[in-house]
Design a protein around this nucleic acid. Structure first.
Length: 464
RNA sequence: UCCUCAGUAGCUCAACGGCAGAGCGACCGGCUGUUAACCGGUAGGUUGCAGGUUCGAAUCCUGCCUGGGGAGCCA
């Protein structure tokens, strides 16, 4: 009587038919009658529960089994019986059921629907529920798919640093990393904190992006990607923002903005197909209980050409449409959330790349277009979630980059190494940042980022 | 940070100035195939916190706390 997992049993039910098996797991539901009862058991290896049937005649501890409560850990042994006419494929006729870990009657997870808000307060128990079981298995699969996509294409995986002294990038508010005593920091004569006596001898923070380091590696390995945690200390409280999230940042050399969009589009489609193929049970669940029509929508997107428009065309299209906006549409201003939603949800009804944004509203490292007014930036907007990718072709011309840095008031001495990439064998290159949780939300239909991160860190919240 | 809505039993909610309730869950019992089982019964409350108005406040007012949604910032 070897122990088997539910995953093995589901995969080879016929093989195990009429044989004795032993399973370990947690009780999801237990219903007893006068002389027999049913336990719905989940062992974590498969989304579904399996049914354990126990009978008074066969089991001396029948009353104890009948009293096993939801949440208890048990071990059950019995014969696997195929039940083609019933709702489940098979069940186990128990010959022995032992309690491994009791669960008192105040176990908060009940065999009923719970609100996401309630479960969020119990991040230690919510993985045992259907929704979060599905979400976090898919999260694991999706991370694997990301690596597989890039590795299949010969990209080199770069571990960009998590602690960095770059504060020149302006991608968001920074979390300071320090070993100085906050109550009594060393001070310079000017009264300012003397970071030269801090751990690294300078002011350091958690990374807001691995992009600049990825550019270094792209100009050595040609195609690279980073995939790691990213930190932003923004005081933003929305269903789409977290202080700690994971970001995927490919960077490709000898490549322009079109190559960049091609890569992004191919990647999004690859990830969709991967999940539809490898997470059938979970995707069916999302389709049925989280976002009706999700699978059909994703299939369409995997087969559709993403729209590709310029910022100027977007402005034109938004001006033409009858819909009223709270914020006026005007060249030179960034697209508001309502504008982005209109583009992707109303006008195109599919993912949309918007390129060629005005120079002033984008970052210093983006390549200036020939018109001198716009840059080779691209955002990918998707229905429901909004922006999931932001990227650009990078400015490879040293003198233009210097002008940009001056314009954005960035000290080029701090980024001397970034400048040298342009000096020694500099070449056109491009890349983008994909929010891992954002695409996970998009692919599962789960609408709050706190529900796709195991232990979310947001403003005023760092539990578990 | 701003706007907005909401906090009542373990959970989801009702009561909206006059006795604090239901469903689910828990507990006890019944039931020979259940599968978010079903049937009967029992217990369970500082109505988020602090103050105010009133004969009387879950209900009206003020402040605070917590959570949801929207905006900004972005991935």
């Amino acid at each position: 009587m070897d122990k088997v997992t539910v995953r093995q049993l589901v995969a080879d039910a016929e093989e195990f038919a009429e044989k004795e098996v032993t399973v370990n797991g947690w009780v999801r539901n237990n219903r007893d009658q006068k002389s027999f009862g049913f336990i719905a058991l989940n062992d974590g290896t498969h989304f579904n529960t399996i049914q354990i049937v126990y009978e008074r005649e066969l089991l001396p501890n029948y009353d104890q089994i009948a009293a096993m409560r939801v949440g208890s850990a048990i071990q059950a042994t019995g014969k696997l019986v195929l039940t083609p006419e019933a709702r489940q494929l098979f069940e186990i006729k128990a010959t022995e059921v032992q309690l491994e870990g009791d669960s008192p009657s105040d176990y908060p997870i009940q065999p009923k629907r719970h609100s996401r808000e309630f479960l969020r307060e119990m991040a230690h128990l919510r993985p045992r529920t259907n929704l979060f079981n599905a979400v976090f298995r898919v999260r694991s699969l999706l991370a694997y798919a990301v690596h597989q996509f890039f590795q299949e294409r010969g990209f080199v995986y770069l571990h960009s640093p998590i602690i960095t002294a770059n504060d020149a990038e302006g991608a968001g508010e920074l979390f300071r990393v320090t070993t100085l005593d906050p109550k009594d920091p060393p001070l310079k004569d000017s009264g300012k904190v003397d970071y030269s006596s801090d751990f690294f001898g300078k002011k350091t923070n958690l990374t807001v992006s691995g992009q600049l380091e990825a550019e270094i590696f792209a100009l050595a390995f040609k195609d690279v990607y980073t995939f790691g945690p990213t930190f932003r200390a923004e005081n933003s409280n929305t269903p789409r923002h977290a202080a700690e999230f994971w970001m995927i940042e490919p960077e490709i050399a000898f490549a322009d903005l079109k190559d960049n969009m091609d890569l992004a589009e191919e990647m999004v489609k690859y990830l969709i197909n991967y999940l539809l193929d490898k997470a059938v049970t979970e995707m069916d669940f999302f389709n049925q209980f989280v976002d009706k029509g999700l699978k059909e929508k994703l299939k369409q997107i995997a087969n559709a050409e993403f729209a590709r428009i310029t910022y100027a065309e977007a402005i034109e299209a938004l001006k033409k449409i009858k819909q009223k906006f709270e914020y006026p549409v005007e060249w030179g201003k960034d697209l508001q959330t309502e504008h982005e939603r209109c583009l992707t949800e109303t006008i195109y009804q599919k993912p949309v790349f918007v390129t060629g944004y005005p120079r002033d509203i984008k970052a210093f490292y983006m390549r200036v277009n020939d018109d001198q007014n716009t840059v080779a930036a691209m955002d990918l907007l998707v229905p429901g979630v909004g922006e999931i990718i932001g990227g650009s072709q990078r400015e490879e011309r040293a003198h233009v980059l210097e002008q940009n840095m001056a314009h954005f008031k960035i000290n080029k001495n701090d980024l001397w190494w970034y400048m040298e990439l342009r000096k020694y064998g500099g070449v056109k290159h491009a890349g983008f940042g994909l929010g891992f949780e954002r695409i996970l939300m998009y692919l599962t239909g789960v609408s709050n980022i706190r529900d796709v991160i195991p232990f979310p860190r947001t403003v005023n919240s760092c539990e578990f």
